[in-house]
Design a protein around this nucleic acid. Structure first.
Lengths: 206, 206
DNA sequence: TAGATTGTTAATCGATTAACAATC
DNA sequence: TAGATTGTTAATCGATTAACAATC
């Protein structure tokens, strides 16, 4: 148990800050302020300062935040100042797209294993990684000590695969299947479901 | 201005309820309760009842909610009791995967237009839809009166494309590019960024 | 120094939960 | 009827904002 419990909602904003700061850094800026960042993100300056102050004092009165330094600090906080191995389950269209996405590495992740049940896919290489037989998943993930998985299997299979992942020791699942997964405490799940996001916006349309 | 202002956070949970209810319905169930639904989703029964009561009285004391009826009501609330035309901008790996995803239609959406700048892609068909030249995007979207777009272009291009979409009359953007988009009031944006979701979970790993 | 911006406290605002009368 | 579950109110809890002393 950490000395100070930091709310999930604050943790959830940190990757957003990191992404914006990295972008600013790439554009050549060296310093920013809570106000500037807030305007960029549509978040109040007070909230950004409050969020950051949960983890330490990273700014300087009068001048603001050194971007490179703040990036480092947030990377440390989120533990992405390293590269996490990720297993990808499901080598369909979405799995293929995810496997070929080049942006993971510089944000702390690399896909090192891909699994599928389809014999026509097993043995093929996606972005240099061989698709392995799903039946070997559990032992392979255990052996490799992988803690993170991305799930791009059909909705019907998702819960069963998730159960196996948890048994294999996976502690974080990014689920692309359009179902709410149930997992034991101590395992984190995040959902990506484009239809859910779209339905969220249609309420406001006419 | 609606008579009663319903919080965004409540709207955000409605598609989740809808997804779970649809699944229950498909499995042959006809009735459910706030408690059962809550257990399934990891949400308190009280919150589900409170959320639903914002829109009307859909349940019966003693028995709970008729699933088919509640599905209909939520579809009406979210305005997905119709099919929305969606434009897809960017025909790379992700765009390709999204175009081929078969689950949109039964959830209220169909991709009717695809645009890209790459001459090697223009003219090709993705899931029966011809990829059109990006330079025609604005007029085509305007002509078709499309209000929803999915953005699967590189990060560098995303803001510029979003600006053009808004000029064309688009009111809802689902953005797959890893940047925070700035849009004028009255336009809704939702972000899908797998690295952000993953970074959110690594905080809790060790 | 004068101006700017942080980190933090207290006040406000909003969301969640607990409890229960109503009623199927 | 007896048991179950809703819709809603009031209480609690948590998150956001405003304000400002500290200080670069």
């Amino acid at each position: 148990m950490p000395a100070k419990m930091i709310p999930d909602i604050v943790i959830g904003r940190m990757p957003i800050y990191l992404r914006a700061l990295t972008r600013k850094y790439q554009s050549g800026r060296t310093v920013t302020s809570s106000q500037e960042l807030g305007e960029r993100l549509g978040i109040s300056a007070a909230q950004i300062r409050k969020d950051l102050s949960q983890f330490g004092e990273f700014g300087k009165q009068g001048t603001g935040y050194n971007i490179e330094f703040l990036i480092q600090k947030i990377q440390e906080i989120l533990k992405v100042n390293r590269i996490w191995d990720v297993a990808l389950i499901g080598a369909g269209y979405i799995g293929h797209a995810v496997a070929n996405y080049g942006g993971f590495h510089k944000r702390g992740f690399q896909i090192t294993k891909i699994f599928d049940t389809d014999p026509s896919k097993i043995g093929k290489e996606y972005n240099g990684i061989k698709v392995q037989d799903f039946s070997t998943m559990k032992t392979e993930i255990q052996k490799a000590g992988i803690q993170i998985a991305m799930l791009t299997v059909p909705a019907e299979a998702a819960q069963e695969v998730a159960d196996q992942l948890v048994e294999a020791g996976v502690k974080a699942i990014l689920n692309y299947a359009p179902v709410s997964l149930k997992v034991e405490k101590g395992v984190r799940v995040q959902h990506i479901d484009p239809a859910v996001h779209l339905q969220n916006m249609t309420y406001y349309l006419d």
